[in-house]
Amino acid sequence: MPSPADSPADLPANVDATLALLQGHDYVAPRDLATAVFLSLRMPRPLFLEGEAGVGKTEIAKVLARALQRRLVRLQCYEGLDVASAAYEWNYQRQMIEIRLAEAQAGGATLKSQDERQRLGEGLFSERFLLRRPLLEAIAPQDGVAPVLLIDELDRADEPFEAYLLEVLSDWQITIPELGTLRAHEPPIVVITSNRTREIHDAVKRRCIYHWVDYPDFARELEIVQRRAPDTARQLAQEVVAFVQQARKLDLFKAPGVAETLDWANALSALGANKLEAEQVDATLGVLLKYQDDIAKVRGATAAQLQRVAQTPS
């Protein structure tokens, strides 16, 4: 990954340019996704991506950062995520030391005058003692270049955090009570992802460009495998993708995502396969499917059938 350049690349001028930009960094996007990305860059509004696990939501942010030569600031969400870990925190240890130093300077005596206290207070809550967390780093970057802010798996955070995000996402500002309001000179490029383990509030979605990231079709998935797992033999890649495409039509608890397809292709290549073999398929199903029920359903007869379908030349 290139280090953040002094001058970030220009934003793409239209949907085709966006498509080419993503393609250039090995992200094979359908046109509707490229349109959403283009709009979010231009309007500018956060891009809200929802979809099953492993369809390449997070990857978009990484690719955008690389393609536009900006820093990627990542905020992984979890339950209980609060302002202290998301936006900023005061460096309490250093503040305590500062108080001790001030006392020492006053010759061991306590700070009596109103003036001294005032000065100490102002000193304690200045930027010197501020620990910058991802949101603050995105709003007020130290290098002055608006980064790509990835807010990953927002559904894992709780509602109070969503509410806090509203101010950040709509006004591009963060209010620190002791310091004042910090506003972004240039809004960051924001990508929010969600796995839909709960519904995100409408108020957040309203501020974003929404896109549902779906599983790719055969041609696109094959291209992804060829770009992202270039060591895979041509025939194997085709059969793997055809197999996975068929498997997604089965009634599985968790259909395999693109990430699993890539893992599986890599796994089979590592085993030296040039095409799908029944034995290897059964042995490596755990790379593709992550639930015992699903594996039991696919293993054996179904896998053989899928394999036959995958190997019939279309």
């Binding site: 925190e89 005061w90 309490y92 001030a102």
Partner: peptide, 13 residues
């Protein structure tokens, strides 16, 4: 710690 430090402001440490 945050609450503690803020309370400190009142007494000047």
């Amino acid at each position: 710690w945050r609450g503690t430090l803020r309370a400190c402001m009142r007494t000047g440490g």
